[in-house]
């Protein structure tokens, strides 16, 4: 699994990925710069951009998982690594690591530039915001990876994942009370916006992560058993 993990990380270090992550960071900086006119702090702007960036990283994970089937590169990977479970877990871990790594870098860089847009946040506050962003990015990357592996098609994976996070959960939010406490996307959004108390955090993370972990488990099981015709 370690080999698959390292190979996926190496594969992901392309110019395209670098530009994409730079774009995500640019969005965060824009949000931080936009805080002033709204009489808010750069930290507030950082947090507002969190769910957007986490959603984009979800799309990246979905594309990475499904793209191998669309392009046919999954054939070469499976021939090189006969254990599909190890391969799938390695790729999942890599997607999550890229999301986590981005969050840490974005937090550090965001702290460095925040002084340009207003009062610099405290280190502790920024660290908390970074940890929340990290959690959100990892949670949604797990979901993106699952949709990619299940659908084996980049358009389908993006459609399913974005439709769920951007539309379906918000429709359900309007219909069911307390949906923000148990729908994973909405919980993740509250996480990035610092709306969860410390006491509620473990339960909230479980609500957010568990459904996606189970979905990924199902995706991995099907990946192990289904024929690859790409």
């Amino acid at each position: 699994m370690i080999r698959s993990y390292r190979a996926e990380l190496l594969r992901s270090t392309s110019r395209g990925t670098t530009w994409f992550l730079a774009f995500c960071f640019a969005l965060m900086v824009f949000s931080m710069s936009n805080a002033g006119p709204q009489h808010q702090s750069p930290l507030w702007g950082f947090r507002q951009a969190g769910i957007v960036v986490a959603t984009l990283l979800m799309g990246r994970a979905a594309t990475a998982a499904a793209g191998d089937f669309s392009s046919g590169t999954i054939r070469a990977w499976l021939i090189s690594v006969p254990s599909r479970l190890r391969l799938g877990l390695g790729k999942l871990a890599a997607s999550a690591s890229i999301a986590a790594g981005f969050a840490v870098l974005a937090g550090a860089a965001g702290y460095a530039v925040s002084g340009l847009f207003g009062r610099m946040p405290g280190v502790g506050d920024m660290a908390a915001a970074t940890a929340e962003l990290l959690g959100a990015c990892v949670i949604l990357s797990v979901f993106g990876h699952a949709t990619g592996l299940l659908t084996r098609s980049v358009p389908a994976a993006l459609t399913v994942s974005l439709a769920w996070i951007l539309a379906a959960e918000h429709v359900l939010e309007g219909r069911f009370a307390h949906s923000t406490q148990w729908l994973p996307g909405l919980v993740t959004q509250r996480l990035t916006q610092h709306k969860l108390t410390v006491e509620a955090l473990p339960g909230a993370l479980a609500h957010a992560l568990l459904p996606f972990v189970l979905l990924d488990g199902l995706a991995l099981l099907l990946f192990v058993r289904r024929d690859v015709t790409s």
Partner: peptide, 20 residues
């Protein structure tokens, strides 16, 4: 089935990692 955005060297390195 190659990663077209990567160089030949990097494609080889990716699969070298996978195959040991």
């Amino acid at each position: 089935a190659l990663h077209t955005a990567l160089t030949v060297r990097r494609n080889l390195r990716v699969h070298a990692l996978l195959t040991g």
